[in-house]
Nucleic acid binder design. Structure first.
Length: 838
RNA sequence: GCCCGGGUGGCGGAAUGGCAGACGCUGAGGACUUAAAAUCCUCCGGGGAUUUUUCCUCAUGUGGGUUCGACUCCCACCCCGGGCACCA
């Protein structure tokens, strides 16, 4: 599209041209090679649904810049891409459009692939995986069987979270404030069903401890979120005998503050505690209690209600005996005690727990202080608010033989006594629960077990894997698993006795798929094992993992769990899959994240058609630092587009004359002033851009520096006057190379225009020359009492003794000193002189 | 309530104890053009003085502090965003 003899920047043409060349030259294909240093950079794999928008593109662009920089720096870079292809939306779309989930999914994958290719991301597409393919999900099944053998997969009847809209079970992690994570307006209900679980709790301690390995490499807040989620709590179980029901089991409570047990004035059970019914039998309180119980059990589970709900409860009419002193205290039922946490029962110590305090206040139960601060005002009991919740400095009072001990001493001693006398023991509990993986859905990995009347539950043999999904399911989207409605799938023979048997009809949570997919990239077509351990040994751990903060808990916790299981199976030797994690900010429009449902997406293809991929890439890198949210601005994109046009025109203007020129071996001794300025700016820019790429990842300021460099070249035009061709070429080449990782298509084109027949991809990242980057002259800021009063240009490297007289000689400085005495002088070489006068 | 982030011009942002506002967007004025687009040039935080040149001063959420010097470090508070939450 030349106008006259001036070429124009045409991204559509350029981008396709270089994408084709890269593919032909197989530039991004990579193999394990122990002779070379490796770098594994990975962006979280997408769920192929809807359209790819600029929010996605930002994520992939960040990864691509890193991949390209590392390649230029000599690393053997693996940068793969794949599809998280199982999941409910495919099934829902299939029901709606009367098609097959596979059709819908594969169409989306094809579309996603097209868009990612259009943006020129440097993926090794030979490693592409799709989790809905039997060649992938058979290994989900294989891992499941290994876990089953080790007791890490088990089945139990349990209350599960049930979303009435999804008509399926949700993991705890998929319940957000009591609502379904997919349906923000739908309250989650609970049901009792036989479910499969993976024993994540068996690794709770390791998942917590190994967070230490991630410090420095993972964002602190992700580590904190995981730590909170695992929720380790050290305490003790203590049994309180029921005093007035013959033969009743004791009530077991969990407490982190056994030292306050002499202050217990009640025992409180959760409304759903199994002992409640027994205690109420024949109790005088029975009638009133039943009504209250019913109300409590169906109380709202909404988080905002829970937090503000008033404490409620009732006396059971029964009493428990404090095992330490035999004191009889009433047994209550309270709405704030959770059956799911600890033992479902607490000892109520109103003086030292806010909730207990509120409860006792309401129902007139006594408050008894048992820990007093060492100094300051003593706690008064009835009139105080609950205090001293953490074990600070203090000593026990009203606690029999333990009086005078510090809380920590008392905790140790009392737990020991409880153990010795058999009514309690120290225990550590976790908030983390086992991972419920059963889904009553079609579009997922079938769980590879069968049920036989004779042999009960029998695992499918490895040789019979994969258990493949039936091709033509009846999909209704409601209730039971669609697989249960498919006789040809359900009916099978028992692997043990050969008799008739039924297959398990649940499929696995899709988080199973994404828990280990990055291992499969190392060896994507292996049909003997999930992967070759030697290949994984070369590539792992992932050097840089990049994704949204939304996965800070679920995906990353499950992946870490899976890694540890695989390690214990002897498949790998490391304990954590990703050495470094980067969580990029969201792309927003109108203040909210881009999403199809909100209708505020900027489509990636639209962007590519209007401005080209390079402009889109540049803009998402330039508009904000990568970890921050970015507000999309249609106007600002123009700036990135204009900049690339300017660069194109600049190189175009000079390229013809420079094609045959070599930039190497510039005689810098003979440099003119203009040349010095150019070379200095070039190498200063290179130094700082290199730093930005390597350490800070502040691509926005790196781009600003490159723009400044361009502006300097422009300011020195016409370059033909007193700038030798080799210097001109050096400047333009460095400009091109620095843009390379961010706008790779344009950079390749410019590189070619500058006379290179080999692609830019064959070139190493340039080394900056510190001699050329050195300033000969620097501007020194002169302050008087910390206020800038003058600036002087001086030769670089002057000493304090040389600088101070120059500072004093400035008229503005002399004026501000105004005859006063200089009491102190601070000199920062090449930067600043501060004269302190009194 | 607890735990993280964050608060800088009209806007996105820069400045890792040393010139606050780089770079870009928007806006204004000008050049080119029959005209428009594109392109190029100039200006662009507030107040004041000086008038056509510079100087002074205020200003990085608020108030204190440390320091020769603070957007940056410390303390307290306000606001915004996110995570967790009757977790015993």
């Amino acid at each position: 599209m030349a106008r006259g003899n001036v070429a124009e920047y045409n991204p559509q043409e350029i981008e396709k041209k270089w994408q084709r060349r890269w593919e032909e030259a197989r530039v991004f294909e990579t193999e394990a090679d122990p002779a070379k240093p490796k770098y594994y950079v990975l962006e979280m794999l997408p769920y192929p649904s809807g359209t790819l928008h600029m929010g996605h593109m930002r994520n992939y662009t960040i990864g691509d810049v890193v991949a390209r920089v590392k390649r230029m720096r000599g690393f053997n870079v693996m940068h793969p891409m794949g599809w998280d292809a199982f999941g409910l939306p495919a099934e829902n779309a299939a029901i709606k459009n009367n098609t097959h989930p596979r059709t819908w999914t594969n169409n989306n994958i094809a579309e996603f692939q097209r868009v990612l290719r259009r943006f020129g991301f440097s993926y090794d597409w030979r490693r592409e995986i799709s989790t809905c393919e039997p060649e992938y999900y058979r290994w989900n099944q294989w891992f499941f069987l290994r876990m089953l053998e080790r007791g890490l997969a088990y089945r139990k009847k349990s209350r599960v979270n049930w979303c009435p809209k999804c008509a399926t079970v949700l993991a705890n992690e998929q319940v957000v404030n009591g609502y379904c994570w997919r349906h923000e307006d739908t309250l989650v209900e609970t049901r009792e069903i036989e479910q499969w679980f993976l024993k994540t709790t068996a690794y709770a301690e390791q998942l917590l401890d190994d967070l230490k390995l991630l410090e420095g490499g993972w964002p602190e807040r992700v580590i904190t979120m995981q730590r909170n989620w695992i929720g380790k709590s050290q305490g003790a179980r203590v049994k309180f005998a029921v005093a007035d029901v013959m033969g009743a089991e004791p009530v077991e409570v969990f407490t982190t503050r056994i030292d306050t047990i002499y202050g217990a004035t009640a025992v409180i059970l959760a409304p759903t505690h199994p002992l409640v019914a027994k205690l109420l039998e024949g109790s005088a309180q029975r009638g009133e209690a039943d009504a209250k119980l019913g109300r409590m059990r169906q109380a709202s589970v909404k988080a905002e209600d829970l937090a503000t709900a008033e404490k409620e409860g009732f006396f059971t009419g029964r009493h428990a005996a404090n095992p330490f002193n035999g004191e009889k205290i009433p047994i209550w039922v309270g709405n704030f005690v959770l059956m799911e946490y600890g033992t479902g029962a607490v000892m109520c110590v109103p003086a030292h727990d806010q909730r207990d305090f509120e409860f006792c206040r309401k129902y007139g139960l006594p408050v008894r202080v048992v820990v007093q601060p060492l100094q300051g005002e003593q706690f008064a009991g009835e009139t105080m608010a609950a205090a001293f919740d953490d074990h600070g400095d203090g000593k026990l009072v009203n606690s029999g033989p333990y009086n005078g001990l510090s809380p920590d001493e008392a905790i140790a001693k009392m737990a020991a006594v409880a153990k010795e006398k058999g009514f309690g023991r120290g225990e550590t509990i976790f908030r983390l629960k086992d991972w419920g993986i059963s889904r009553q859905r079609y579009w997922g990995t079938p769980i590879p077990v069968v049920y036989c009347a004779k042999d009960s539950m029998v695992p499918v043999a490895d040789k019979d894997l994969p258990v493949v999904l039936p091709p033509n399911p009846k999909l209704t989207g409601m209730g039971e698993s669609p697989l249960a409605e498919t006789p040809e799938f359900v009916n099978t023979t028992c692997p043990k006795c050969g008799g008739p048997a039924r297959r398990e009809t649940d499929t696995m949570d899709t988080f199973v798929d994404s828990s280990w997919y990055f291992y499969r990239y190392c060896d994507p077509h292996n049909d003997k094992a999930p992967y070759d351990s030697a290949k994984v040994g070369y590539w792992f751990p992932i050097d840089q993992y990049i994704g949204g903060i939304t996965h800070a808990i679920l995906h990353l916790l499950y992946s870490r769990f899976w890694c540890k299981v695989m390690r214990d199976l002897g498949l790998i030797t490391h304990s954590e899959p990703a050495a470094r994690l980067f969580t990029q900010g969201m792309v927003q429009k109108g203040g909210v994240a881009m999403s199809k449902s909100r209708g505020n997406v900027v489509g990636a293809l639209d962007m590519a058609e209007k401005y080209g991929a390079d402009t889109g890439r540049l803009y998402t890198l330039f508009a904000a630092p990568p970890e921050k949210d970015l507000e999309w601005s249609e106007e600002s994109i123009e700036g990135s587009w204009r900049f690339l046009n300017r660069v194109f025109r600049l190189v175009d203007r000079h390229a013809a004359a420079l094609r045959e020129v070599k930039s190497a071996g510039i005689d810098t001794a003979a440099a003119t002033e203009k040349e010095k300025v150019l070379l200095r700016k070039a190498h200063q820019t290179l130094r700082r851009v290199t730093q930005d790429f390597e350490t800070r990842w502040h691509f926005n300021s790196a781009i600003a520096l490159i723009m400044e460099f361009y502006n300097e070249i422009q300011a020195q035009e016409p370059l033909e006057e007193s700038v030798r061709p080799e210097v001109r070429k050096e400047a333009l080449e460095l400009l091109t190379l620095m843009l390379g990782p961010m706008t790779p298509h344009l950079a390749e084109e410019l590189w070619e225009m500058l006379g290179h027949s080999e692609g830019l991809w064959t070139t190493s990242w340039p080394a900056f020359d510190s001699d050329l980057a050195r300033d000969e002259e620097v501007e020194i800021v002169i302050q008087v009492n910390g206020r800038v009063r003058a600036r002087v240009k001086v030769a670089a490297g002057l000493s304090e003794a040389e600088l101070v007289p120059k500072a004093l000689a400035e008229p503005a400085v002399a004026q501000h000193i105004n005859g006063k005495r200089v009491v102190k002088q601070i000199v920062v070489p090449d930067k600043l002189v501060n004269l302190v006068v009194a």
